[in-house]
C-alpha cells in the first residue's frame, strides 16, 4: 500500500481530516526547504505538497508565482527538489510527499528518469497541473512502474463523465479545485464545494482533498467538514516569502500557522 493510501486510511480510522500544506521547493532559498518541511510536520501536516518551481506557472496566482520566482532566482531545479525529498526522508519515513508542478521540467528530465529518481528519493505522489489524463499516458506508465501515485485535479467545470474518467486514471487521492480561478483566489463557495465533493464520491472510492482558496481557520473548517483533506498553499507561501532567515523563530511562525489550521479542522 502506498504511503498516501496508508495515510488516508489512518486518518479515516481516527476520524480526522487531512491537512496538506503546500510550499514551493527552494523558496525563499534552497537551504530553507528541509527545515520548512520539518516545521510543517511539527505544526500538524499529514501530507506535504512540494511545489516544483516553473518559469511560467499558468494556474497559479501571484503568491505562488512569487514563490516560484524566488526559488528560480536561486537556480532550484527539479533534480534539486528530488534531492530535498531524499534529505527529508532521512529523518521522516512517515509523512507522504507529493511533488506538484508543471509538465516541462518533467518532460525535459525524461519521464523514466523522473519516476525512478523520485521513487528512490522517497516521493510518494505526483501532480502535474497542466497534464490532464489525456496527455499523461507516458508519465502514468512510468509512475506505476515505480509505485508512485498520480494525482489528478477535478474542477467545478469538470463534467460527471469526466469525473468518472479522471477517477479511473488517478490514484492516491483526488484533488478538487474549489473554485474557478487560480491558486490563492478569494472566491471560495463552500456550498458548491460540498455538492461537488458529494458527486465525486459517487464516482470514486478515492479520498477527496480540496484546495485553491482556503485562506484561514474558518474556510479550512468549512471545507474540511465536506471533504477528506484540505490543501493550503498561497497563505503559507506568503509567510515563507516574508522569512528573512531559517531561525527557530522564523520557522515557528510557519508551524504556528499550520497548528491554527490543524486545530480548526480537528474541531470539525
Amino acid at each position: 500500500m502506498s504511503r498516501i493510501t496508508d495515510c488516508f486510511k489512518n486518518l479515516q480510522e481516527k476520524k480526522r481530516k487531512g491537512l496538506i500544506p503546500f510550499i514551493v521547493a527552494g523558496d525563499p532559498k534552497p537551504g530553507f526547504t528541509l527545515p520548512l518541511m520539518k516545521a510543517l510536520v511539527d505544526g500538524g501536516a499529514d501530507l506535504i505538497e512540494l511545489g516544483v518551481p516553473f518559469s511560467d506557472p499558468m494556474a497559479d496566482g501571484p503568491a505562488i508565482q512569487g514563490g516560484s520566482e524566488r526559488a528560480l532566482a536561486h537556480g532550484t531545479t527539479l533534480r534539486d527538489v528530488i534531492d530535498m525529498v531524499a534529505s527529508f526522508r532521512k529523518d521522516n519515513q512517515q509523512t507522504p510527499v507529493i511533488l506538484m508542478g508543471y509538465s516541462n521540467p518533467v518532460e525535459i528530465m525524461g519521464y523514466e528518469d523522473f519516476a525512478k529518481s523520485a521513487a528512490e528519493a522517497g516521493v510518494d505522489g505526483v501532480i502535474i497541473v497542466d497534464m490532464p489524463p489525456e496527455e499523461a499516458g507516458e508519465l502514468k506508465e512510468n509512475l506505476v512502474k515505480h509505485q508512485l501515485d498520480l494525482i489528478f485535479l477535478i474542477a467545478p467545470t469538470t463534467s460527471v463523465e469526466r469525473q468518472k474518467y479522471i477517477s479511473e486514471t488517478a490514484s492516491g487521492f483526488l484533488y478538487y479545485v474549489s473554485l474557478k480561478g487560480v491558486t490563492g483566489s478569494n472566491r471560495l463557495d463552500t456550498n458548491s464545494v460540498e455538492e461537488s465533493v458529494r458527486a465525486i464520491k459517487q464516482q470514486s472510492k478515492l479520498p477527496v482533498g480540496v484546495g485553491f482558496g482556503i485562506r484561514d481557520a474558518e474556510s479550512a473548517a468549512k471545507v474540511a467538514k465536506v471533504s477528506d483533506a484540505i490543501i493550503v498553499g498561497s497563505p503559507i507561501v506568503e509567510l515563507v516569502g516574508e522569512m528573512v532567515d531559517d531561525s527557530a523563530d522564523s520557522l515557528n511562525k510557519i508551524s504556528e500557522y499550520i497548528s491554527t489550521m490543524r486545530d480548526a479542522i480537528d474541531a470539525v
Binding site: S103, E134, L153, A155, T157, R162, G181
Partner: peptide
C-alpha cells in the same frame, strides 16, 4: 481529434480549462 500533430500540440492545461 485531440489536437496532436504527430508528437506536438495537444491540450496541456489545468483541469478547469478542459471543459471549456
Amino acid at each position: 481529434e485531440n489536437g496532436h500533430f504527430g508528437p506536438y500540440g495537444g491540450k496541456f492545461v489545468a483541469e478547469t480549462l478542459m471543459g471549456p
